[in-house]
Design a protein around this nucleic acid. Structure first.
Lengths: 339, 339
DNA sequence: TTTAAAAATGACAGCGCTGTCAAACCATAA
DNA sequence: TTATGGTTTGACAGCGCTGTCATTTTTAAA
């Protein structure tokens, strides 16, 4: 029923070791031999047994995605991206949601790494932003790729995929400024998250470049949640300086701000422009539809996975930095001031 | 570094076979022996090597989750539920998104089943509702658990977890009727999906039980998407009979209906009540917040996975039916008529 | 106490593959 | 032609575990 390497070897008239060589793309196999083997492989629909490979070999054929993120859209996008790289390369994906604040997190991941043969780990924020954690993982002699926020990698511990939130944030802010806004509120995510730091930096830089003074009363601490958006917007609109626009650190916060505006009877975008960040599906489903920044998450994840796979195959130089800049998506939640 | 069964055997002073027996919860191990072994296992932090188990044994230690569903919230919930069962039982999860309409779907899954040792499959709609597909899987001699919509299992091919959409739908409709509504629109999901059929059945039955005539003009075909909700609601409100309430087959459709109401200047819930179905996170983030039905997806998924695991361990009678009925969650999108 | 049956334990092969290393092969230069 | 060195191929062990079956130990009955 299921073909083994033995069947293929017999069919092709070579030794199993030669089949193994072909399956692993090793050199020192003559072209005609390689073709003979591939023919047999196709005829028999042979696929190497992963369990046997793992047991016998020293290489790994799985990668793990470790995440601590309540955002279902984000996680699914990342997963699909990684999965697509895995499928193409015959790798397997282990998914491991976790809580980055829990005490046992280090032991938990250490255990996982020690007990499953894993080619490498894909880390997303906030895990990717915990240097001690990353160093510990590296001490386990496992490859790690980090997806991070920023325009420069903070160190060269691992290959990084940088999402240039700083640039993207400047573009959003500039969009708001171009519409005539000068009093722009800022609803932050968790201040420990680099994405918040970077987005705030972009916001500030855009204001400065346009000669607009930064007013700390317009910058509200918070977290990446709907509720935080509701509260932040309320606070902003009840404050001394009433902004005409609100920059929200993600779509969920923006949805919360939108909700609060309704609550307070402030029409959006007529009297208040609101922007999101992420372009999650529901940013198209709010009223009004959100102006936001689009992050190509599946592409980012696929890139991360491919990096790991290439490394596992020793095909890649280490510590490549890839950069993505989220693009502005203008929809209905922003408009000219006092329109 | 990593302990093997050999290390444990030595430490405990028994043969590796005895350790194996303990690890697999087999009978015929005396209690003191079992304890000795467990002690060694804990001391050495031993975990059986999955690859070796798969290679040597006939049992499987993975289950696969195959889905064709664009709803990120649903997928993540299911995944987390399955994962939690897996973690407890030392199983692994393979995730496999797919397209149920694609030509190669049968071969694709067949291949997967043949090439990975899998204890069983968890199937969600629409895959779980394709009897020929399920029969084919069973012909591969693999266990399947289906999560389905309805109050009775359609057959006894496999154990089923039934989600009683019919009941839940009656409750939502009754809620609307209790508020004084008699002209209630119905925005359907794909008519091929049992969930749509069941929800429509519940809607109709509730109307009938309250002596309200069913008006086919109030029932609009559609699909499970925001856009479909927008169009459906527009159609409904432009039709001969203008409903005072809309039953939407899921939260996304409801969000679309909400959006359309804004577009048409119809205040919700004052002039139009709208209900969702699913209680996805964003049903709390719309304006107004959606009245909906809560489906305990993670619990359902965990139950499905546990069924599979129990079967793999030969601990369970087959073809158990479990039933869940989603509960009404009343929020702000429904109110008394003409309030 | 002896004995048979049942229960507990162990020895050993082998799952399908890869790593190591030795053998066979080939091309080139002497 | 033969020697030389590189390239291609194969034989074989063994990864860590489970299944089979033989052996030992325990238990209960005679």
């Amino acid at each position: 029923m299921k073909a083994t390497i033995n069947d293929v070897a017999k069919q092709a008239g070579v030794s199993i070791k030669t089949v193994s060589r072909v399956m692993n793309n090793e050199p020192s196999v003559r072209q005609p031999t390689r073709e003979k083997v591939m023919e047999a492989v196709n005829e028999l629909n042979y696929k190497p047994n992963l369990a046997a490979r793992n047991l016998a070999g020293t290489k790994a054929y799985s990668i793990a995605f470790i995440y601590d993120n309540p955002n279902a859209y984000y996680v699914i996008d990342m997963q699909n991206g990684i999965l697509s790289a895995c499928k193409q390369q015959g790798f397997e994906l282990l998914i491991h949601p976790c809580n980055s604040n829990s005490e046992g997190i280090v032991d938990e991941i250490t255990n996982m790494v020690k007990h499953s043969r894993i080619a490498g780990l894909v880390l997303t924020p906030p895990l990717s932003e915990m240097p001690e954690f990353v160093k510990h993982l590296l001490s386990l002699e496992i490859d790690v790729v980090r997806i991070m926020s920023g325009d420069i990698a903070p160190d060269d511990l691992t290959p990084c995929i940088m999402v240039n939130d700083h640039q993207a944030s400047m573009r959003i802010t500039q969009h708001l400024i171009d519409l005539g806004h000068t009093d722009i509120g800022f609803l932050a995510g968790q201040s420990e998250h680099m994405s918040t730091v970077e987005r705030l930096r972009g916001y500030k830089q855009a204001l400065e470049e346009n000669g607009i003074k930064i007013d700390p009363r317009l910058i509200i601490d918070g977290e990446y949640s709907f509720e935080s958006g509701v509260n932040g917007a309320k606070q902003l609109m009840a404050g001394d300086v009433r902004p005409t626009a609100i920059f929200s650190c993600n779509d969920e916060i923006a949805a919360g701000a939108l909700f609060a505006s309704r609550l307070m009877g402030i029409p959006v975008p007529e009297q208040l422009s609101i922007t999101g960040f992420e372009n999650s599906p529901f940013s198209r489903q709010t009223w009004p539809r959100l102006t936001t920044a689009n992050q190509p998450n599946p592409k980012i994840a696929e890139g991360a996975a491919n990096l790991l796979i290439a490394k596992a195959r020793k095909q890649a130089a280490s510590n490549i930095i890839t950069e993505y800049t989220p693009q502005l998506v203008v929809r209905d939640s922003t408009s000219q001031i006092n329109q």
